[in-house]
């Protein structure tokens, strides 16, 4: 499947898809989207990149081991829940702050942190499955 066309397009396609996945992730709270969908889109992007340019290229591109990404995501989600304990509300209660960055009000919340964690878990897990299958037991 390593045709020239696919190989040339793959980096752009992948970066576009990853960007799109982050967009989907961030808008998820108010529009269709969210961590699960975003994560799946990013994972497919990386899978396509892997098919086109080889597993080694993907591993270089994401730098961290996919399982490590996944683990960080799980930790983030769990900590987002723990965060609320410090505010003396039950575990997993959403906390919101509205700082002004560059003159724009930005809604930040522990819920967003949680969703980013979900995104990372899905990316990491699916990516590790896909990459593992692509390289098989060759190593």
């Amino acid at each position: 499947m390593r045709t020239v066309i696919l190989r040339s397009i793959a980096p752009f396609l992948t970066s576009l898809m990853v960007l799109f996945s982050i967009f989907v992730l961030l808008r998820g709270h108010n529009e269709p989207g969210g961590g699960f969908i975003g994560g799946l889109i990013a994972a497919s992007a990386l899978a396509i990149y892997g098919i086109a340019c080889g597993v080694a290229a993907v591993r270089r591109a994401i730098y961290f081991h996919p399982i490590a990404i996944s683990a960080v995501g799980l930790l983030m989600s769990a900590l987002a829940g723990v965060l609320s304990l410090f505010a003396e509300v039950p575990f997993m209660s959403g906390l919101w702050v509205y700082p002004h960055l560059f003159g724009v009000e930005v809604a930040l919340s522990s819920v967003l942190v949680f969703d980013v964690g979900v995104y990372l878990v899905v990316v990491g897990a699916i990516c590790s499955i896909a990459l593992g299958l692509e390289e098989g037991d060759r190593d």
């Binding site: 108010n30 269709p32 949680f114």
Partner: peptide
Amino acid sequence: AHGANVVNVIIVDFRGTDTLGEIA
């Protein structure tokens, strides 16, 4: 919960602990 997408709000906020288990 300050979210318009009810499905997403259920997943990440109302039933967040469930989701934590599921991503685990």
